[in-house]
């Protein structure tokens, strides 16, 4: 086997020194590196029971969430929960119970690719949006109606009615991998009640998953859970760790 002429080797080396930086720049521009699917996280919210109780002493709210990591940049998620409310104001009672569902996506605000290499995304800040829905049953009881001038009084009960309420949420938060896949996070949410099949939004004192009355609500979540990462994702992370 004959050796290639030295001139060819020099030309190849020269060509690579010109071409490689171009490739590297192109790779830097690439926003995403394979694999697409990086893992699944399951979280339980520890704050919502407390947030519920701040609205009223008989407001019980529980929620959990599952999210999928795509390129560690996008996190489509499903959140499910259940709330049971029994509240009294001036002898008027309000009861509501319902599961609620949220569908949306978080966006990791950190760079997932740097110098053409996948970054080790364990902790990140994110923003996100949700559409949420609650098929709720509510009832209002012991509403006293008085005619102060002419006299007379009656008590009205509005029997249990099944209605739906839908709202949107804007979410901002952080997610931290504190040990070997166990993750926790904080988030704040601003919620806007969009529509309901009830005759008026004013009928609701508390909407499961949304919160207390009005058209805008605010909530805080503190979640803890586990992130299942694919072997390829772990390999990517280890590569970056070694670097």
């Amino acid at each position: 086997m004959t050796e290639p002429p030295r001139i060819y080797v020099v030309l190849i080396v020269l060509a690579l020194t010109v071409v490689m930086p171009v490739f590297a720049k192109e790779r830097e521009k690439t926003p995403f590196l394979s694999p697409l699917f990086r893992g699944v996280s399951v979280h339980f919210d520890l704050a919502s029971p407390i947030m519920g109780l701040t609205a009223g002493k008989n407001v019980y709210n529980y929620e959990a969430m599952v999210e999928v990591s795509l390129y560690d940049r996008f996190f489509p998620c499903v959140e499910v929960g259940y709330a049971n409310v029994s509240h009294t104001i001036d002898e008027k009672s309000y009861k509501a119970q319902s599961p609620f569902f949220r569908l949306g996506m978080n966006l990791n605000l950190l760079k997932t690719v740097k110098d053409g290499k996948a970054q080790n995304i364990r902790n990140y800040a994110y923003i996100g949006v949700r559409y949420a829905f609650a098929p709720m049953t509510y009832s209002i009881g012991n509403v006293v109606v008085k005619d102060d001038y002419w006299g007379g009084e009656t008590v009205i009960d509005y029997p249990a009615e099944l209605v739906y309420a839908g709202w949107t949420e804007i979410v901002g938060g952080v997610r931290i991998d504190f040990i070997a896949g166990f993750t926790m996070g904080w988030s704040v949410r601003i919620k806007t009640l969009m529509h309901t099949s009830a005759t008026s939004k004013d009928l609701f004192w508390y909407v499961p998953g949304f919160g207390k009355n009005g058209t805008t609500s605010f909530s805080f979540n503190y979640t803890i859970g586990y992130t299942f990462r694919t072997p390829e994702t772990k390999r990517l992370m280890n590569i970056d760790k070694a670097k």
Binding site: H87, I89, D90, K92, Y94, I140, V143, V144, V145, I156, Y158, S200, D202, L203, W205, N213
Partner: peptide
């Protein structure tokens, strides 16, 4: 026409 306003305000006619 009796209308329910809210849990705080009750009904109004």
């Amino acid at each position: 026409n009796m209308e329910f306003l809210s849990l705080e305000c009750g009904c109004i006619t």
